[in-house]
Design a protein around this nucleic acid. Structure first.
Lengths: 173, 173
DNA sequence: CAAATACTTGACAAAATTGTATATTTTATT
DNA sequence: AATAAAATATACAATTTTGTCAAGTATTTG
């Protein structure tokens, strides 16, 4: 499982704009701050623009700003603008092996697994806003230790007890 | 965020072995059932072998079997054998932009975000065993509807309230 | 011990992703 | 109007991932 390059760099770009006091940045400014080329930043912010997260002004003195306040922009919406989610309509078409259509097309428990984890991830990111990244890494880590690992060991952040094949008859499909 | 090809196909291969009544399958057999080439299956099962999830027997009448009972093999261990996790040691080295070292190397709230989601995902997969995939997709879906979306709307499967930059002083980093 | 079967390994070809280059359009300033 | 600064668009080069090929090693069976 991988974070794609556009997701990583795209989040960095919009976070630069979000944290900028003036609320306004040009492509060359972002490029300099993130050590990226202007061409690449242009591509990324364009994705964010199409996704409705940024507004642009053309011409001299132009630039980009957030389309809404940072506390109303979820990480989920940012990632959705930058790449396709873990599970999308195209997924099963991507993995057909040597056949022209996937062997498990009409009944695939693995597909249900990916859909489940996608749901978990999407929910997590839907609750995290750009403003939540306005802090130091130490603060974030501390939060992680307190909440995530705690919740995790409480088995609340899990997919516990997927229907077992051995005792799966309880569920009427 | 993407599931890699080796993760997808690798899970399919080990699931074939796990579901096989004899508990024993050869590379050509797996290849046929999954519509993959024998060369590709060989590569994938070898990763699973190195990861300690399979045992192999060479020579005529050889093949692969699970190294332990299917209910003791987590999806997490399978995925770890097949690919690197969402966040690993190499991560920051992959995204350095045009610089030779990442601009945010010593303080990066985004990194903490990826580490957090990685933890959530790993925990979820650590609780899901191969046997939990021994069912129909409908059964899985039904389970998803009951548990996942429910827990999600209960805000228990989330990263709620990451430290905010506005009111983040409460946390002593 | 030879033949058949099956795993092992490393190199390489194809495809997808990632990143760059170039040209165009828009707009403020002089 | 001319110029400079900035966004937009498209095509293309580089890299990484994905999948294949081919030559090897090991083991069982007759």
């Amino acid at each position: 499982m991988k974070i794609t390059a556009s997701e990583e760099y795209g989040v960095r770009c919009i976070l630069q704009i979000a944290r900028e006091p003036s609320g306004y940045l040009t492509i060359p400014q972002i490029a300099k701050r993130e050590a990226l080329t202007t061409a690449y930043v242009a591509k990324l912010v364009h994705l964010l623009l199409k996704g409705g997260l940024l507004q642009s002004t053309r011409g001299k003195n132009g630039g980009y700003r957030l389309a809404r306040p940072a506390d109303q922009i979820s990480i989920l919406s940012v990632l959705d603008a930058l790449a396709t989610p873990i599970f999308s309509k195209e997924f099963c078409n991507r993995f057909t092996g040597t056949a022209c259509t996937c062997k498990h097309d009409n009944d695939c428990s693995i597909r249900a697994l990916w859909i489940a984890i996608d749901l978990v991830v999407r929910h997590a990111f839907s609750e995290t806003m750009l403003t939540n990244l306005f802090c130091t890494e130490r603060q974030m880590q501390r939060w992680n230790q307190i909440h995530i690992t705690h919740e995790a060991s409480d088995s609340r952040v899990a997919l516990p007890g997927f229907p077992s094949g051995l005792s799966g008859n309880e569920i009427d499909g």
